[in-house]
Simulated assay, not measured.
Amino acid sequence: MFGDMMGMMGKLKETQKKVEETKKRMDSVLIDESSTDNFLKVTITANRKITGISIDDALLEDKEQLEDYLILTINKAIAKATQIQESELAAVAKEGMPNIPGLDMFK
């Protein structure tokens, strides 16, 4: 019984390490998102850190329109980044979970 527990604890520690490595790797995964007319482009990491914004000169003349574009485009980029990060972390967690009866939430 204790051997199984020690094995499970080791597996959990290994999984935790893989999760941390995956989180760090997500800093290098870049997501590009654009407005529908490509006047605004945002680059964000899978950890939801903005790394770049490109604004067409046409948007600089209308502050309200620029703000709307920023909100919409950044929110789309964040949604994509969140989806990528969650799926990557879920895959690592599923792979590393020990087979504990009754705990099959990742299957």
Rank of each mutant, 00 (worst) to 15 (best):
Lys107Glu: 12
Met6Pro: 11
Glu14Thr: 14
Lys107Tyr: 06
Ile55Gly: 01
Ala91Lys: 13
Leu72Pro: 07
Arg48Glu: 08
Tyr69Leu: 05
Asp37Asn: 03
Glu14Pro: 12
Lys41Trp: 08
Arg48Lys: 10
Asp56Leu: 01
Lys18Leu: 14
Ile55Val: 10
Val92Pro: 06
Lys107Arg: 15
Thr43Arg: 15
Val29Leu: 13
Thr45Ala: 01
Arg48Ile: 00
Gln16Ser: 14
Met6Glu: 13
Val92Phe: 04
Lys11Ile: 06
Ser54Pro: 01
Met6Thr: 13
Ala91Asn: 08
Ala58His: 03
Phe2Gly: 13
Asp68His: 02
Leu103Tyr: 11
Asp56Val: 03
Gln16Pro: 14
Asp4Cys: 06
Met9Gly: 09
Lys41Ile: 11
Leu72Asn: 10
Lys76Asn: 11
Asp57Ala: 15
Ala58Gln: 09
Thr36Asp: 14
Ile31Lys: 00
Val42Ser: 04
Met97Val: 05
Met9Lys: 11
Phe39Trp: 09
Met1Phe: 07
Ile31Thr: 08
Glu14Ile: 10
Pro101Cys: 02
Met97Asn: 07
Glu14His: 10
Lys23Cys: 11
Leu70Pro: 04
Thr45Met: 02
Gly96Asp: 00
Arg48Tyr: 00
Arg48Ser: 10
Gly52Pro: 06
Ile50His: 00
Lys23Phe: 09
Glu86Cys: 07
Ala90Lys: 15
Lys107Phe: 09
Thr82Ile: 00
Asp4Glu: 14
Ile84Asn: 09
Asp62Val: 01
Gly3Leu: 11
Asp68Phe: 03
Asp32Cys: 08
Asn47Met: 09
Glu64Gly: 05
Glu61Trp: 11
Ile78Tyr: 01
Phe39Ala: 13
Met6Gln: 14
Ile74Arg: 02
Pro101Gly: 01
Gln65His: 12
Val42His: 03
Ala77Ile: 05
Glu86Arg: 15
Glu14Arg: 12
Ile84Phe: 11
Phe2Asp: 14
Val19Glu: 05
Pro98Cys: 05
Ile74Ala: 01
Met97Tyr: 02
Ala46His: 08
Ile78Pro: 00
Glu20Val: 13
Gly102Ser: 08
Glu14Tyr: 07
Leu30Gly: 04
Ala58Val: 02
Ile53Met: 07
Gly10Trp: 03
